[in-house]
Nucleic acid binder design. Structure first.
Lengths: 142, 142
DNA sequence: CAGAATCCCAGCAGATACTG
DNA sequence: CAGTATCTGCTGGGATTCTG
């Protein structure tokens, strides 16, 4: 019954991987940080006047983000202590998000990465064009 | 006819976003860099002796990665000019991947982020525990 | 050993609608 | 304004198999 063997293997692999994750929590944190929206949100806050923005301001500053992702990411950042959430229970409700010192610290690093991306973008684009051109010139079997 | 308005809005938003992406290619590059496996592969190479590793060595050094993702990520990194691929056509075929100067440059930045993650992991974990505890103590409606 | 091709599932992420 | 809840899809990514 090979089917069961395969299933068992999957389970083992999964368990092993989970164990690994527990052994190596840095990977988890790294994965969180590496999240697409995390970088953008943290950057946006970092560039804001006092590292503070309202929910809708964030939404406007980050084109392409849905409320869902915004809320979700914001919550995870809050959970990790990278941003703080301040609710002002006025009538048209107001919520401010700001970087905590910890979050600001990380923001600096991410900024440097962002700067790198901006600085070397043309080099990368150049390499890509070159690579694609060569790939184009080597059709597999046509 | 509000239905059409909604559709039109979606189209506009999509177009605007696409335009934004073209205007702001940094985001693309940033997204690539932020990829889960990119960080791990680049880090692995960075920590290797001469920033060079074979395919299978990479696979071994990065638990949890599948060949598919490994190959896929490696190819995108090669395309971007961050790693170079050297094939030695011996009988048991040998392929070495190494960081280019450009890739090595990026690797340094990613290392700092990784270091940050390692350094502040306990703080983050602390915040998480606190957050979860408070969430636990505030059951929605049960 | 290095990798390409295929199948297939899970979970991420977007749109929509409703609430306080 | 600031969310939450739900449905749905799309693709990221894992397992498997085959080739050079």
């Amino acid at each position: 019954m090979p089917t069961r063997t395969a299933a068992a293997r999957r389970a083992e692999a999964r368990a092993a991987y989970d164990a690994f994750l527990k052994e190596c929590p840095t990977s988890q944190l790294l994965a969180r940080i590496s999240d697409k929206w995390v970088g953008l949100i943290v950057s946006a806050l970092h560039e804001a006047d006092d590292a503070t923005l309202r929910y809708s301001e964030l939404g406007r500053r980050i084109p392409g983000v849905s409320q869902k992702m915004l809320t979700q990411t914001l919550r995870s950042l809050e959970r990790d202590g990278l941003v703080s959430r301040a609710v002002t229970p006025t009538v048209p409700l107001r919520v401010d998000y700001r970087l905590t010192p910890l979050g600001a610290d990380l923001a600096c690093l991410l900024s440097s990465v962002k700067l790198w991306a901006e600085t070397h973008f043309d080099e990368v684009a150049d390499h890509r064009a070159d690579y694609d051109a060569r790939a184009e010139a080597t059709p597999p079997a046509a």
